[in-house]
Design a binder for these strands. Sequence first.
DNA 1: GTCTATAAATAGATAGAC
DNA 2: GTCTATCTATTTATAGAC
Lengths: 222, 222
Amino acid sequence: MAGGERRLQILRVAVRLFSQRGFRGTTTKEIAIAAGVSEAMVFRHFATKEELYSAILDHKACLHDTMDPVQVVAEAIARKDDAAVFEGLALDALNQHDCDPEFHRLLLHSALEEHELAQMFWEKFVKRVYRILGAYIRQRQRDGAMIQIEPSVIVRAFVGMVIHHSLNNNLWDRKRTLLKISNQAAAREFTNILLRGVTTTTRRNGLSKKATGKNSRKKSSR
Amino acid sequence: MAGGERRLQILRVAVRLFSQRGFRGTTTKEIAIAAGVSEAMVFRHFATKEELYSAILDHKACLHDTMDPVQVVAEAIARKDDAAVFEGLALDALNQHDCDPEFHRLLLHSALEEHELAQMFWEKFVKRVYRILGAYIRQRQRDGAMIQIEPSVIVRAFVGMVIHHSLNNNLWDRKRTLLKISNQAAAREFTNILLRGVTTTTRRNGLSKKATGKNSRKKSSR
DNA sequence: GTCTATAAATAGATAGAC
DNA sequence: GTCTATCTATTTATAGAC
């Protein structure tokens, strides 16, 4: 097998094992066996186990760089379509986690081990979501469309619903014994709860026909 | 030092190290050094490393058995005081995590490693919260006090806010760079968001407050 | 109870043949 | 590129003296 090809294969096997048992919990021998090669081959492609780990992180991080969570809803933000903003973000996150559960586990392992990936992810991804979503909420508060709660609290509440749901599905309750629901439905329900919870609205008929932004005139209700 | 005493001391040291670096990431030598004894002493009190781990889990699980999260709000449930129910649960969980962050980390490690503790905790604790809180919500829906959303979804949303907040504070953002808020305030804010989001009460306009119980939620949002 | 010394197994990593 | 064989350090665990 060609160099680059084999390298990638070993890398993928390592991703799987590291995500299952953590960095320290996985031996280079296990990786070699799972990849169907000798240990020497592993060390031919990656000088040390640490280097292998780093390569994985780079690999994963690069993949996730290309998908910008904020870009997914940029247009909804411009339109000030609250439901589309939150539902879009939630659905994107849930789908992401579903199609790459390994990454979520890898991230948790690295957070527990205080490895660089955790901090990198935090800096490049989480902070960004808080900044941009926080700014959006602040704007909507100025519009009189949302009640005066510290925006970070709202972000945390919403991110909490979504991430915790993923964590449940991927880590604790893979059989979905407690809650079986599609990602679409979950994104919609969480968004409904949050928006009912934080938007100013006088009518109780349904929930979404409220200020779409451009012409909201209500000033600070409380 | 007497037998039982030393045993407990080693156990406590091990709890700290395991929660920091996981089971496989901690060596018996490190434990011995941290406890100020020789490795032989560790193996005198615990035949194997596995046995030490199990002893920790028993120790912790037993501690947490005594504090029933549901009992904390039993009286609020009887009174149908929605705000007290949710705020009480949230505050209890947040304080619990704050005063024993090790347990939270230990739990995560064991969930990732698929160790028994994780499943035990899930069965004895999480399921219970879902069952009881779900039943309460269902009752409140029959009362006409809450909108018709699958109760499990509401539970997941709320538990998500709270647990994710703890996870952030204990694992990712110990410096609280993104959100600095007291447990009391957090419990109150999350409850406000959720209850605004799921209750049928007509708020502003001083219209009817159709909720049945003596719902004494205060309307302060800074 | 506590230690030092050490056994036995496993880990990461390298050498060198093919 | 790939393997077998091997080295070295570490890790779990034990023996036996005090």
